[in-house]
Design a protein around this nucleic acid. Structure first.
Lengths: 137, 137
DNA sequence: ATACCTGCAAAGTCTTTGCCTTAGG
DNA sequence: CCTAAGGCAAAGACTTTGCAGGTAT
């Protein structure tokens, strides 16, 4: 938590009540969350409105602390980049549940090769497996 | 083309002018396209409107001929599932260009393991690499 | 003949911006 | 103090739906 706030300070963000609350909520998430998820979170509902969350998320993204994911049909989801970020997810197309896969990155080597072959920099990836889960089948 | 239309017939879709035109345009695409891309395509612009394309895409998705992808920040993109579908893409976060990677699927084995371990069925995946391309850097 | 399909317009949903106020450094 | 951040309301950008009329089978 302090690490994150220090990075914010270093990047000239002001440490406001909203920022600390949002970072706090983001830290306790096991899965990526949407803007709407945050808006309705009890710790945020009363202290800041949607616009503040929206802009704060973008600031965090700009300074490289937050990753935006696009796997939901409608709307982005966000996850902190700190620590052991998961980049692989398993999603049921029927009930919509998402689980992070706790596996070694299966495309790390490929990513390095791509960087070499294509000249792309700052490579990262997003890998989602979709299917129908055991319950829904 | 005939294969696709036959599948449509088998699934009780009516073979309308709009359907054949949309399938035709989809077949000539090398990359996934958005609803807006289709709407402005010269072969479609005059013969059908956005709603028709929207609903046709959903019908094609329902009968399993079309895949919906979510990698663009805003709005879905679609690609036919026929033949050698690409499931891996390389995307520049600055200029937004997308290229399909012509590589052997790097997660095929993992996908089979997942099916076995989790009980998921109908597994498929979406893998996107993001970065900054050589020109934009 | 009868479902299904189409087009237009309108309603939704979620994101983004303008502008004035508040408060961090 | 000075400038970034917050809040409200309104504008955007797409997507989705209702309904009347057209068309494939």
């Amino acid at each position: 938590m302090e690490d994150i706030l220090n990075t914010c300070r270093a990047k000239k963000l002001r440490i406001t009540k909203a920022l600390t609350a949002i970072v706090g909520v983001l830290m306790e998430q096991k899965l990526p969350v949407s803007l709407a998820d945050l808006e309705s979170h009890p710790d945020l509902r009363k202290i800041c409105d949607r616009t503040t969350i929206f802009r704060t998320l973008h600031r965090l993204e700009d300074i490289g602390l937050l990753r935006r994911l696009n796997f939901s049909e409608r709307g982005a989801k966000f996850t902190l980049k700190t620590g052991h970020a998961h980049n692989e997810y398993l999603i049921c197309e029927d009930c919509g549940t998402v689980q992070a896969l706790d596996i070694a990155c299966p495309v790390h080597k490929l990513e390095e090769e791509l960087a070499k072959e294509t000249g792309f920099t700052k490579l990262h990836h997003e890998l989602e497996f979709y299917g129908i889960c055991a319950e829904c089948k």
